[in-house]
Amino acid sequence: MFSTRLVSWFISIAMVMLVSCTAYAAPPKEIFWDDLIPAGHVQISNQEAASHDGDDKNWVQPNLDAPVVKALDGKNISLPGFVVPLEGDSEVITEFLLVPYFGACIHVPPPPPNQIVHVKIKNGVPIDSLYDAITVTGTIKVESFKNELAQTGYTMQAVGVAPFEL
Rank of each mutant, 00 (worst) to 15 (best):
R5M: 11
A158H: 04
P111T: 09
P111G: 05
M15A: 15
S45G: 12
P62L: 00
G138A: 01
V60L: 14
G124C: 09
D128I: 12
S51E: 06
D65Q: 10
S144I: 05
G40V: 00
T94L: 12
Q115A: 01
P111E: 06
G88P: 05
Y131A: 15
P28F: 03
V19T: 10
I37S: 03
K70N: 10
K75P: 02
E87H: 15
I121C: 04
D73I: 05
P113S: 09
K29P: 02
A26S: 15
V136R: 02
F96A: 09
A71R: 11
V142T: 08
K120E: 12
H107Y: 10
N46E: 08
N147V: 07
V108R: 01
H107E: 13
V69W: 03
N114L: 00
E30R: 04
Q157H: 11
T4N: 15
I13K: 02
D53F: 13
L166G: 12
S45N: 15
D73P: 01
P109Y: 03
V68A: 03
V136N: 03
V136P: 00
P112M: 04
T94Q: 08
K122V: 13
L98Q: 00
D56Q: 15
F102D: 08
D73G: 03
L166H: 15
T137A: 08
A133F: 07
H107M: 11
P38H: 04
A66M: 02
P163C: 09
F164R: 13
P111M: 05
T137I: 07
V119N: 01
P110R: 02
Q157R: 15
H52T: 14
W33A: 03
F145M: 06
P38G: 00
N123Q: 15
P109K: 08
K75I: 05
I31S: 02
I93P: 07
P163I: 07
D55A: 12
E91K: 13
K122T: 14
E87K: 15
A23V: 14
P112G: 03
I140F: 00
D89V: 09
L64A: 03
K57N: 08
F32N: 10
K29C: 05
